[in-house]
Every structure is written in C-alpha cells, then in structure tokens.
Write a protein that binds this DNA or RNA. Sequence first.
DNA 1: TATTGTTATACTCTATAACTATA
DNA 2: TATAGTTATAGAGTATAACAATA
Lengths: 159, 159
Amino acid sequence: MEGAQKTAGTESGLDLLAFFPYRLAILAEAVSESIAQIYADRFDLSRQEWRILAALGNRAEMPAKEAGRLCALDKMQVSRASQSLEAAGYITRREDRADRRNIVFELTPVGRTLYERIVPLAQAREAYLLEALTADERQEFSQAMDRLLARSRALASRG
Amino acid sequence: MEGAQKTAGTESGLDLLAFFPYRLAILAEAVSESIAQIYADRFDLSRQEWRILAALGNRAEMPAKEAGRLCALDKMQVSRASQSLEAAGYITRREDRADRRNIVFELTPVGRTLYERIVPLAQAREAYLLEALTADERQEFSQAMDRLLARSRALASRG
DNA sequence: TATTGTTATACTCTATAACTATA
DNA sequence: TATAGTTATAGAGTATAACAATA
C-alpha cells in the first residue's frame, strides 16, 4: 500500500506487488492453504464441508439455511456438502417438523470426534499465524478487516 | 480473532465467524470481487489476464517467466492468459533472441489504452477501500500482512 | 405465489503430466 | 540432461436455471 502512493510526480502506473487487493488475495490464499492442509489433505474434506462441520461444532443443530448464511455458501453448495457429510457419516439431516421445507443438520458422534480432532490443529495454526502480531495489533487488524469488508461490500453492491 | 480467545474455561469449540483464516477469506473474496467488477465485468478479462496486463503496464516488456513470479501464476496460466491477451490484440509475444526458449511480452498500443482505462478505476476502488484506515493504520496493516504472509508460508511449506 | 432445497446441465477452472524446442 | 513453454486430459468446482415439495 505504500507503493500505491506516487513515487514520482509523473508516475501513473499500477505497481501490482503493492496493489492492496492483490496483496490481500495472495495473503488470503496462503493462509487458506495453510488451513486446508489440515481439513483437506489430512481429513479429505472440501472447503464447504469443513465450514459446515466447523459451524456445527458449537451448537446442537443448524438449519440448512442458517448454514448458508453462516458459512458464506449458496444453497447448492450447502446441499451438496451436507449430502457428502451425511454419506460420510459425519452429520444427520432431518426435516423440520414445523416447516417440512427446512432441513436441519446435526453432528453424529463420529462427526463430533472428527470435529474435535481437526479444531485443535486448526486453532494451533491460527495461533501460530497470529503470533506475528501483538495483542493490540490483532485487535487493530481485526477492526481494520471489519471496516474494509464493509467498504468492499459497498463497492460490490454498487456494481 | 477476539472470538478465538476462550470465552469460558470449558469452551473448546471453534467460532467460525471469529476464526481468522475464515474472516480473511471472506474479506479477500469481497475485495477481489469489487475489483473484478472492473476488469471482468466491464472489460471481460480473467483474473490472470488482468494480472499480466497490470504487471506489464509499468515496464517496457516482461519475460513470461517473470510474469509468473510477479503475478503469482503458474506457467500454464501464464501461457493461456498471454495467448488470450495476444488474440485480443492487447499484447505481443516474441522469442528472446538470446535464448529462444524464453517468450517476452509487450503491450500493444491497444493494450496500453486498455491498461490506462482500467488502472484509474482500480486505483479509485483501492483508494475508497483504504479510506477505511488512517495513514498510520494502513502502514501497520501492510506490515501485519507481510508478517502474516511469512508465517502462513512457513506453515504451508511444513505441510 | 413464494420459499426451501434438489437436480441437471453446461461451463470454467485447475492439476497433472506428456510433449516440443531450445540450451 | 535441464529448462521454457505448450498441449492434452481429466477432475473439481461453479453458475444458471429447471424442478419438486411445502407453505
């Protein structure tokens, strides 16, 4: 982002390596890969499956629609990932009796065991990453992320 | 990241919405989308094509191999994206006489015109995003990104 | 008529490796 | 034998919309 500042009065080009969206993409990809090595390489879960599993871990059950909102997945991704998780024996899927259009997910004991094996590994990696920052810096980074997210969504919705 | 701290002594679950890699992925996706609306929606370029075009803008020419390193693309992505850019008339590709295995890219006048139309729009969006942060915060965020990238690569290379 | 979720289809993207040519 | 780049192939992932069931 320093590079985005003009280094000379006549400089009008874009320095890709200093372009904020590019740098953020590279960082997010690297971080994502470092976590995917756990859920994908070691436990053979897709990103979508991992997100649903992770979201299910700290609640008794979760409707499909909430899984979509919570995991930033569309309804097709939720449908397919939840079918895979069910086929693998990690979750159950049942109809909501109150409104039978809704499907509710629940972890099986096997799914909970998987969750409890993955989560500490994922958290250890997160902790290692965040050791790059002091407690204050983490908080500032976190707040900056929130503000950047709000602005990027404002842009995206503008088209 | 605050949420990653234990909220109770017995809490061992993972709060997906507070999990740093998840939040970073969501942010990067939103930022990426806000820029892709320009190069993809308005100018029909793929992400790979855009990166090569952007990297070419502030230099006379660029070898294919350097494009790969600079744009974080593998040699196949460079090969295909550069062929598309050539077919669209935005770049030329010629052999390096010194070593005819190397291919060197150069912007055509049409390509430069495209570059000069896209870059101000992309920079305007970048600037809007970064207005979320003060100058100091930008610098701290930038340094934090560098440190996080180093650590995520250390993790990823560990496997 | 609107909503939830599934299925179908085509399309894009990616990963692997075989291949060409140059060195 | 090693390197730069291309091509081929198959697999994964994605997007669109048509569809069924329920409300």
